[in-house]
Design a protein around this nucleic acid. Structure first.
Length: 981
RNA sequence: GCGGGUGUGGUGAAAUUGGUAGACACGCUAGACUUAGGAUCUAGUGCCGCGAGGCUUGGGGGUUCGAGUCCCUCCACCCGCACCA
């Protein structure tokens, strides 16, 4: 019988499903192991060959752990809320619930096709009300708690109310408003509404304000992704930044713990480094600069009297080098300090900044922009008048939104000063040349009164001490991390369990959960940038006597009163559901809790989490924070979710581009959907292409699905083009064909990009599985290279893996004779091969080196084949080693050829015997002066002296030593020999 | 711009701790078997050189008996940058 993968894979998939072999219990005699993949967003393009890379790795690891005797939890689910489904709904009118359902169905089929060992009975979907009920519940935990800085943990907001009742907020400064100060009596005298607005500045989930992209023409808020080259991706309309009331998570309170918690995690240094940089801890000082009385002609606001500008600096030692101040254009003081003379210019500049993304503002450093406010501050030590400017390179969200500019010591400040002809004070002596800023922390500070002559570290300390003494500054640790925006003005997300009564936000009581997402027919944005939910007035308004909508326990209930409440119409962002899904898998059917404490105590942390580095700072940081909050509030027993993190590289797609010549009249519109224009990687909406034919000669255009048509030289031949026309329609422009050897072709430009639907470069694993089988596909993806390296998808080489499986099959079964296994005793050579393989496979899987495992299996099969070995004793352990990688063929061999009882899944991973591995003699490379000249065999236990004598006596060695005396003899046992002359 | 990663034959890659660079595959060349080959098997295959030999891990420099691996520096590409997930 030959290797019929189609039949074998179908048969065993059915067997595994029928026997529920992947079902896992919450409890076992065996030790537990939790192996998790980052669940996918079910996109309309279906699963592509990049997704399974990590899934195969975790599947192999799970199967290996099971063979090693663990109770392995290996679940899968879907991150089902998100923007693409809604964008698709806007374009086609199809409801996101429907498309999401369809996409999930397709994803599951594709996943099952590859033969993963998921326990589907534990599947979660973030868009399922039974799931998001608990997302909402956790949100309420965040809303109903505050971060106690003294005990460094989250506590219920009711504790804070008790504290305020007893002693005001003296002990606990408000993280949202540091000027807030009241005693117990003042607190008690506040109205309920005032009290709740004070509490809002403490809550971990709170409301504040943030800028969003606003598109007037579409009447909607846009995601960064929907803004391309400064205009809306859809339609190409202008966009600007707009301030809106938003929900936030106070992740900044957790900055220190998120930082220190990294130390105990088994993540790569790169990953930890990225999180550290994202959190961006820096220490320095906040310094107050009082506003000068001059000039007096202010256009806005009056009596700046005692007003001052606070800046954060990590270099207080450079305070004598301050030549100007820069405020973020959004800074609250800008309007009140701008003089009449400068008002028009400032307004114009602010309009310009509104059109700029944050990324553009910080990255385009060569372009210096800014505007003088007309006002000055007074230097606290020298009394010098310092001009106050605004500029886009200062961001409102970081530090105090204002900086003291030291052009001698900071590159951007330097460029700014030169551009606007601001005189530069040198505080670094000879080290500042006038050419560029001196930003190193070496040498001493000069020209700085009491700091002169001090080294940087000393000067920083002294400066802070003096600033604090004089009451003009204070030591401060600052984080680059910002609170996480948690509102989206969208439909397809979790509704907030929040109701407004008299404009005060109240949490919906547990009885009212879940707050279900209402069905809609239209995804039109609501008025004034609100989400689509704002249009459903029936849903938004609720009667307050509805007793099922009980309010949280911590505040006077608004329910039971006459009148109406209004629901929050924002929805939660994509990362809400994914911040805790790993907990739900532990107890997915629980209707009373997000997961029982028994379940979370049993499974504990995720032992191995596999996913891409693109989640380094988003998802992974949020999930860590939510875990810490749930831990602080006593709901779970651990405060880090993912013990070990394995990053898989990205499988990229190859895209092909060609140069346009000239559009064909009339064809462009009818076939416009075949193209996206791309020039210098910048996308242009293709409506524009259809109507304006907005490309000229030499625009680079994407050939959609190019990888299916190009040949190995990256050429589109005339014949493939004919096929292309049949399948996708003609290209709407003239084609200039090159000719070579009678063949007509166009030379295409190849680019490696992320695999995505919008780039038309997606490769479906189903196609590969149909052609070669799931086992070949799995092994090929692993054989491609190290798991953490990104590479473009290429099927070159898949034949080799397929051949390997066929060759392996022939060890067990012959085309003409059927099963060929014999019971003979294994030889020493055979045992050495198989035990070497057992050792290597175990070690390789433990260190996630799956590509070398596949190599070793190939080596093993090659050697056994050339020995003509068909012995059970050798081939039985081999099939167990193979089973994590190629489970279908392994099961067929296990049960079909070896006639074993039960599944290979529950076999025991073989143990290797060291005795079979040791070789009696070792072949040493002998080098003279580091250059290998000859190989010599020595007994494994030969001493250095014996070897040295033999080596020096060797004719080849003597030839290369050329009569020179030996200076040194280097012998590395088991490795090599080096003679230095 | 900032942060992170990667760079080794024609191609994917291996070298786990500073110790034989190129394992294992793809491709290619030649051959065997065969009605046939997109099956299978055998041999060869980093580059230069007739050869002895020399050169070779993105470029340049350094440490070392010895560097793909450590240090400095430069270059190229990929990923992320806070409302894509």
């Amino acid at each position: 019988m030959e290797y019929n993968f189609t039949e074998i894979e179908k048969k065993w998939k059915q067997y595994w499903a029928d026997n529920k072999v992947y079902k896992v219990a919450n409890g076992s005699e065996k030790p537990k192991c939790y192996v998790l993949d980052m669940f996918p967003y079910p996109s309309g393009a279906g699963l592509h060959v990049g997704h399974p890379l990590g899934y195969i790795a975790s599947d192999i690891y799970s199967r290996y752990k099971r063979l090693k005797g663990y109770n392995v939890l290996h679940p899968m689910g879907f991150d089902a809320f998100g923007l693409p489904a809604e964008q698709y709904a806007i374009e086609t009118g199809q409801h996101p619930a429907k498309t999401t359902e369809d996409n999930i169905k397709r994803y599951k089929e594709q996943l099952d096709n590859i033969g993963f060992c998921y326990d589907w009975s534990r599947e979660v979907r973030t868009s399922d009300p039974k799931y998001y009920k608990w997302t909402q519940w956790i949100f309420l935990q965040l809303f109903e708690s505050w971060y106690d800085r003294s005990s460094q943990k989250a506590r219920p907001i009711s504790d804070l109310i008790s504290i305020f009742d007893a002693s005001g907020n003296g002990e606990h400064t408000s993280p949202g408003d540091e000027h807030l100060s009241f005693n117990a009596a003042e607190w008690q005298q506040m109205s309920s509404k005032e009290q709740r607005s004070v509490l809002m500045t403490y809550r971990i989930a709170y409301q504040g304000y943030a800028d969003v992209w606003w598109c007037e023409a579409l009447g909607t808020v846009l995601a960064n992704d929907e803004v391309v080259n400064g205009v809306s991706e859809r339609g190409g309309h202008p966009v600007e930044r707009k301030r809106m009331r938003q929900w936030f998570l106070r992740i900044t309170e957790y900055a220190e713990r998120l930082l220190s918690g990294l130390e105990g995690l088994d993540w790569t240094d790169a990953m930890k480094e990225m999180q550290r940089n994202w959190i961006g801890k820096s220490s320095g000082a906040v310094v107050k600069f009082g506003l000068s009385k001059q000039p007096t002609s202010l256009s806005f606001g009056e009596g700046r009297g005692e007003a001052s500008i606070s800046v954060f600096t990590t270099r207080p030692d450079t305070i004598f080098g301050v030549d100007f101040m820069v405020l973020a254009p959004e800074h609250e003081l800008v309007d009140s300090i701008t003089t009449k003379e400068q008002a028009a210019k400032i307004e114009e500049y602010k309009r310009y900044v509104k059109s700029r993304s944050e990324r553009e503002r910080i990255s385009e450093v060569k372009q210096v922009t800014g505007c003088f406010t007309g006002s000055y501050v007074v230097h606290p030590f020298t009394g010098k008048e310092i001009p106050v400017w605004i500029s886009e390179y200062v961001l409102a969200g970081y530090g105090t939104g204002a900086i003291m500019a030291v052009p001698a010591g900071d590159e951007r400040d330097n460029a700014f000063a030169k551009h606007f002809n601001i005189p530069i004070t040198n505080i670094f002596g000879d080290r500042y040349t006038g050419e560029s800023a001196y930003s190193e922390k070496a040498g001493t500070i000069e020209n700085s009164e009491f700091l002169s002559g001090m080294k940087v570290a000393e000067a920083i300390e002294t400066a802070i001490e003096v600033l604090e003494e004089k009451g003009i500054g204070v030591r401060k640790v600052n984080y680059r991390l910002r609170d996480a925006g948690f509102s989206r003005q969208r439909y397809w997300g979790e509704p907030f369990p929040i109701t407004y009564v008299d404009e005060v936000a109240y949490g919906v009581g547990e009885d009212g959960l879940p707050v279900e997402l209402p069905y809609v027919d239209s995804y039109k944005p609501g008025p004034e940038g609100q989400g689509p939910l704002a249009n459903i007035t029936d849903w938004v308004k609720i009667k307050l006597d509805n007793t099922t909508q009980d309010v949280d326990s911590t505040s006077p209930s608004p329910w039971g009163r006459a009148g109406e409440g209004l629901r929050e119409t924002n929805t939660m962002p994509g990362y809400a559901g994914s911040s805790w899904y790993f907990l739900r898998y532990m107890d997915p059917g629980n209707d009373n809790e997000f997961a029982s404490r028994a379940a979370t105590d049993y499974w504990q942390q995720v032992d191995l989490y596999v996913g891409g580095t693109e989640h380094a700072v988003g998802h992974l940081l949020y999930a860590r924070m939510w875990t810490k909050v749930l831990h602080d509030l006593g709901h779970i027993g651990f405060d880090e979710p993912f013990k070990k993190l394995l990053n898989q590289g990205m499988i990229q797609g190859k895209s092909y581009f060609f140069k346009t010549v000239k559009p064909l009249e009339g064809v462009a519109e009818s076939n416009s959907s075949s193209f996206i224009i791309s020039s210098n990687k910048k996308r242009v909406a293709y409506e524009q292409f259809a109507t304006e034919k907005a490309f000229t000669e030499n625009t680079s255009l994407r050939l959609r699905y190019g990888q299916e048509y190009v040949d190995t030289n990256g050429r589109l031949t005339y014949d493939s083009y004919q096929r292309y026309i049949g399948e996708h329609g003609a290209l709407p422009f003239e084609i200039l064909w090159d000719k070579e050897g009678g063949q007509q072709f166009v030379q295409l430009k190849e680019e490696v990009e992320k695999m995505s639907k919008s780039k038309y470069n997606v490769v479906n694993p189903d196609d590969i599985v149909a052609q070669y089988g799931a086992d070949t596909f799995r092994m090929y993806e692993m054989f491609l290279g190290p798991i953490d390296v990104s590479k473009p998808w290429d099927t070159k080489g898949i034949e080799g893996v397929h051949r390997f499986l066929k060759k392996l099959w022939r060890l067990y079964s012959d085309e003409s004779q059927g099963i060929v296994l014999v019971d003979d005793v294994a030889t020493e050579d055979e045992l050495r091969i198989v035990h070497k393989t057992i050792k290597k496979i175990g070690e390789d899987i433990e260190r996630f080196s799956f590509n070398t495992s596949v190599s070793q299996l190939m080596i093993c099969v090659n050697e056994l084949s050339s020995l003509g070995c068909h012995k059970r004793a050798v081939l039985e352990p081999l099939v167990i080693l193979l089973s994590p990688f190629a489970p279908h063929i392994a099961e067929e061999i296990w049960q079909g050829c070896l006639k074993q009882e039960g599944s290979v899944l529950d076999a025991a991973f073989p143990e290797y015997n060291e005795a079979y591995l040791t070789e009696s003699s070792i072949k040493y490379p002998v080098a003279i002066n580091g250059k290998r000249r000859v190989d010599m065999d020595f007994a494994a236990d030969a001493t250095k002296d014996v070897i040295e004598t033999a080596v020096l006596a060797d004719a080849t060695v003597q030839k290369w030593m050329d009569g020179k005396p030996m200076r040194k003899f280097i012998f590395v046992s088991g490795k090599m020999i080096n003679v230095v002359v």
